[in-house]
Simulated assay, not measured.
Amino acid sequence: MLRYCLFLPLIILFGFSTTYRKNEVNLVKTNKWFIAGPSVENEDTLNKLRLKNGIVTVTTNDNPKGQIELNVMITPSEINDGIPANLSDDSKYLKITYQSTQVIKLQAREGNQEGTGCVHGGSHPRVSIPASPKRFSTIKIPWSDFRQDELTDGKLLNIHNLCKLNFVNYNPTAGSVLKIKSLSF
């Protein structure tokens, strides 16, 4: 009986910690974000406000030229590069709580063929995130929806070699806004 009394707290603790790791990964809270393109916020401002307010906010400047690309590594990194993550087969979808005045393309960037690094280029299956200008929306996107160039027969995403997620506004209009409150898998 004494053995059970000693092991029961450990079993409970292990069970809760496993659930926590699976369900509580929120990249808005845990990882540094990177930005490029015609936005009001620079990388430092974006991350200071993210840590203070718990929301990633990007606003297009008054004279946008080119696309805006907002990205976050899956494996925490202080640079916009690093080691790819090997997500569990139990990971079935990406969950996002966001608000956006425009449609956003979400690219899932894969690592190199060897699975040792995240380099620009290569495969980046994607999906479209609909505009939600009036309120925050929460959507779940199955990993199986991510296909190269959004083609129905495009190459599927390999979640066992996942580097980063890129939120891309290919045609930003002045003053457009994207806010991300949570991003988890």
Rank of each mutant, 00 (worst) to 15 (best):
Lys164Asp: 11
Asn42His: 06
Gly121Gln: 11
Leu162Arg: 02
Ser123Met: 07
Asn47Phe: 03
Asp62Asn: 15
Ser137His: 06
Gly15Pro: 00
Arg3Val: 08
Ile35Arg: 03
Arg21Val: 04
Glu110Asp: 05
Asn80Val: 02
Ile79Cys: 02
Asn31Lys: 00
Leu10Val: 12
Thr57Ser: 11
Asn23Phe: 13
Leu94Cys: 01
Asp149Thr: 05
Gly117Val: 10
Asp149Phe: 06
Arg135Ser: 15
Gly122Tyr: 14
Tyr170Asn: 15
Phe16Gln: 04
Lys92Val: 05
Leu156Tyr: 13
Lys155Glu: 14
Leu94Thr: 02
Thr57Arg: 07
Asp90Glu: 14
Glu24Met: 14
Leu157Ser: 05
Val25Arg: 12
Thr101Trp: 02
Asn53Trp: 09
Leu87Pro: 09
Ile55Gly: 00
Phe7His: 04
Val177Ile: 15
Thr173Gln: 12
Arg21Gln: 08
Ser17Glu: 09
Gly122Gln: 09
Val168Leu: 13
Thr152Asp: 13
Met73Leu: 14
Ile79Val: 14
Val119His: 07
Asp90His: 08
Arg147Cys: 07
Leu178Asn: 09
Asn171Trp: 04
Ile83Phe: 11
Phe16Ser: 12
Cys163Lys: 10
Asn161Val: 13
Gln102Trp: 00
Asn166Tyr: 01
Asn26Gly: 11
Thr173Glu: 08
Leu165Asp: 04
Gly111His: 11
Leu49Gly: 01
Glu110Gly: 00
Gly15Thr: 13
Lys32Thr: 10
Asn86Pro: 02
Leu49Pro: 01
Gly115Cys: 14
Leu94Pro: 00
Ser176Met: 00
Tyr4Ile: 06
Thr57His: 07
Asn80Gln: 13
Ser17Ile: 05
Lys105Pro: 00
Asn161Glu: 11
Cys118Lys: 08
Pro133Val: 06
Thr152Pro: 15
Leu2Thr: 09
Lys22Asn: 09
Ser77Trp: 06
Tyr98Thr: 08
Gln113Met: 09
Leu51Asp: 15
Gly15Cys: 07
Val58Trp: 02
Thr101Asn: 03
Ile141Phe: 01
Ser17Lys: 01
Pro64His: 01
Val103Asp: 12
Arg135Phe: 09
Ile79Leu: 04
Ile180Glu: 06
Gly154Trp: 13
Asn169Arg: 12
Phe185Gly: 12
Ser144Pro: 05
Ile180Asn: 04
Pro125Tyr: 02
Leu70Phe: 08
Ile12Asp: 03
Asn112Pro: 13
Ile74Pro: 00
Cys163Asn: 06
Asn71Phe: 13
Ala174His: 09
Leu165Glu: 03
Val25Ser: 14
Arg126Asp: 14
Val72His: 00
Ser88Gly: 03
Leu27His: 03
Lys179Val: 04
Glu24Lys: 03
Glu41Asp: 08
Asn169Asp: 15
